[in-house]
């Protein structure tokens, strides 16, 4: 292979740029300089999506660990059928699902410049998220009183670890939502920075999606 091959192999030589006279070169401003990027996507949003892609593997491992652990639970030990309260969990699942709606409405309000609406919806999202976490704490307490501790058996360890990881994610999400609210109240988050709301929103919806999986796989699948 010679040098010529490489030159020919190049599919689209940008001749126009090559031949641009010197004077015009100064007009060709760096894409970066105007806040643009090579792909046209913002750094922060790309970062968040990469992080969420990574989280898929994290929750995948936790969910499959749970499924495997449950299948290895010895006969006669306290298991899912002994503790699960489907109607209760259904309500808290519904609460979390609806928090995704309020989240997206908060973003929509911010995009339209309706900051009052944003504050209302973001508060609602935090409250719904808080309700979900409170429900989880209540559920854990009930299970514990039924005799299912973290170390009781392999099901207990796996169940608390999986739902605990999810609960921690929700709690971090609530802290971030509250921070958004504080920033808005302090005047440092307006419609011109709506992207921040969008980023936290992406995280929040992802956490919701994970719960959609957990609710079906852990609670609803026939035991």
């Amino acid at each position: 292979m010679t040098e010529t091959d490489t030159a020919l192999a190049d599919p689209a030589p940008e001749v126009a740029q090559e031949q641009a006279p010197q004077g015009h070169a100064e007009e060709a401003v760096a894409v970066q300089e105007v806040g643009g990027t090579t792909t046209g996507i913002s750094h922060n949003k790309l970062m968040m999506w990469l992080f969420l892609g990574s989280e898929c593997l994290l929750f995948g491992a936790l969910i499959s660990t749970y499924m495997f652990a449950k299948s290895r639970l010895p006969e006669g030990e306290i298991g899912p059928l002994d503790v699960f309260d489907i109607p209760f969990t259904s309500v808290s699942s519904f609460v979390l699902l609806m928090s995704s709606l309020t989240m997206v409405l908060a973003l929509s309000a911010m995009n339209r410049g309706n900051e009052r609406g944003f504050r209302i919806w973001i508060t609602a999202t935090s409250l719904l998220g808080g309700t979900f976490v409170a429900g989880q704490v209540y559920e854990f307490t009930v299970f514990y009183n039924h005799g299912l501790g973290y170390t009781t058996n392999i099901f207990g360890s796996a169940f608390y670890t999986l739902t605990g990881f999810h609960g921690v994610h929700v709690s971090i999400g609530i802290v971030m939502l509250m921070s958004l609210l504080m920033m808005n109240l302090r005047g440092s988050l307006g419609p011109d920075r709506a992207e921040r709301v969008e980023l936290i929103g992406l995280y929040w919806h992802f956490v919701d999606i994970v719960w959609i999986l957990i609710f079906t796989i852990i609670y609803l699948f026939p035991q």
Binding site: Q32, G35, G36, T37, S42, H43, R193, E195
Partner: peptide, 12 residues
């Protein structure tokens, strides 16, 4: 606007 490469600018 939050989408700029953090604090980085190129000359013109």
């Amino acid at each position: 606007n939050g989408s700029g490469p953090a604090d980085v600018h190129l000359p013109a």
